[in-house]
Lab assay of single mutants.
Amino acid sequence: KSAVKALFDYKAQREDELTFTKSAIIQNVEKQDGGWWRGDYGGKKQLWFPSNYVEEMI
């Protein structure tokens, strides 16, 4: 599983989504079709976030 870095702040709209700030590192990313991926951040595990808010880390 990979890690991504947030390009923008994102505030969860639902309880199954992540809230994060710009430059946050989201771990254990599971990529899905449809523009939403799952990952771990801030003590939350495998919640959804919009993939267009992040960049992949190499």
Rank of each mutant, 00 (worst) to 15 (best):
K1S: 14
K1R: 13
K1L: 13
S2A: 13
S2F: 14
A3P: 09
A3K: 12
V4N: 04
V4F: 13
V4Y: 14
V4S: 04
K5H: 08
K5G: 04
K5N: 06
K5F: 10
K5Y: 11
A6D: 04
A6R: 00
A6I: 03
A6N: 02
A6W: 00
A6H: 02
A6P: 04
A6Y: 03
L7K: 11
L7Y: 03
L7F: 06
L7T: 07
L7N: 06
L7C: 11
F8A: 12
F8C: 15
F8Q: 12
D9F: 05
D9Y: 06
D9M: 03
D9P: 10
D9W: 05
D9A: 11
D9C: 09
Y10A: 01
Y10W: 08
K11E: 13
K11C: 15
K11Q: 14
K11A: 13
K11R: 12
K11H: 13
A12N: 05
A12Y: 00
A12T: 05
A12C: 05
Q13T: 12
Q13A: 11
Q13P: 03
Q13R: 11
Q13L: 10
R14L: 07
R14W: 08
R14I: 05
E15K: 11
E15N: 11
E15C: 13
E15S: 12
E15V: 11
D16S: 09
D16C: 15
D16I: 10
D16V: 08
D16N: 11
E17Q: 12
L18A: 00
L18N: 06
L18K: 06
T19W: 04
T19D: 10
T19C: 08
T19E: 10
T19H: 05
F20T: 02
F20D: 02
F20C: 06
T21S: 13
T21H: 14
T21I: 12
T21P: 15
T21R: 11
T21Q: 13
T21V: 12
K22I: 09
K22M: 10
K22V: 11
K22Y: 08
S23L: 11
S23H: 15
S23Q: 11
S23A: 12
S23T: 10
S23Y: 15
S23F: 15
A24H: 04
A24V: 08
A24G: 08
A24Q: 04
A24T: 08
A24E: 07
A24P: 03
A24W: 03
A24D: 10
A24R: 00
I25K: 03
I25M: 06
I25L: 09
I25R: 01
I25A: 04
I26K: 00
I26V: 06
I26P: 01
I26N: 03
Q27N: 14
Q27S: 13
Q27W: 14
N28K: 05
N28I: 03
N28F: 06
N28M: 06
N28T: 01
N28C: 10
N28H: 07
N28Q: 07
V29G: 01
V29I: 07
V29M: 00
V29N: 02
E30Y: 14
E30M: 14
E30G: 09
E30S: 13
E30H: 14
E30V: 15
K31G: 02
K31N: 03
K31W: 05
K31H: 05
K31Q: 09
K31A: 05
Q32W: 14
Q32H: 15
Q32E: 11
Q32V: 15
Q32I: 15
D33K: 10
D33A: 13
D33T: 11
G34N: 09
G34Q: 07
G34R: 05
G34L: 06
G34I: 06
G35L: 12
G35I: 10
G35S: 09
G35Y: 08
W36S: 04
W36T: 06
W36E: 02
W36A: 03
W36H: 04
W37T: 01
W37K: 02
W37S: 05
W37E: 02
W37I: 01
W37G: 02
W37A: 03
R38A: 05
R38M: 08
R38S: 05
R38P: 00
R38K: 14
R38E: 02
G39M: 02
G39I: 01
G39T: 00
G39S: 01
G39R: 00
G39H: 00
D40M: 00
D40K: 00
D40A: 00
Y41H: 09
Y41C: 07
Y41P: 00
Y41D: 02
Y41T: 04
Y41V: 05
Y41N: 02
G42D: 13
G42T: 01
G42F: 05
G42M: 10
G42S: 07
G43E: 09
G43H: 08
G43S: 10
G43N: 11
G43P: 07
G43V: 07
K44I: 06
K45F: 15
K45G: 05
K45E: 12
Q46E: 05
Q46C: 09
Q46P: 03
Q46K: 08
L47M: 12
L47A: 15
L47G: 15
W48L: 12
W48A: 06
W48D: 01
W48P: 04
F49K: 00
F49G: 01
F49L: 03
F49R: 01
P50D: 03
P50F: 03
P50Y: 04
P50E: 03
P50V: 01
P50L: 06
P50G: 02
S51F: 07
S51W: 07
S51Y: 06
S51I: 08
N52E: 13
N52A: 14
N52K: 11
N52T: 11
N52R: 11
N52H: 14
N52P: 06
Y53V: 11
Y53K: 07
Y53A: 11
Y53P: 02
Y53M: 13
V54C: 05
V54D: 01
V54R: 01
V54I: 05
V54F: 02
V54Q: 01
V54P: 00
E55G: 07
E55D: 08
E55F: 08
E56F: 07
E56T: 08
E56H: 08
E56G: 06
M57W: 12
M57S: 09
M57L: 15
M57D: 11
M57Y: 15
M57V: 14
I58C: 14
I58N: 14
I58S: 13
I58H: 13
I58E: 14
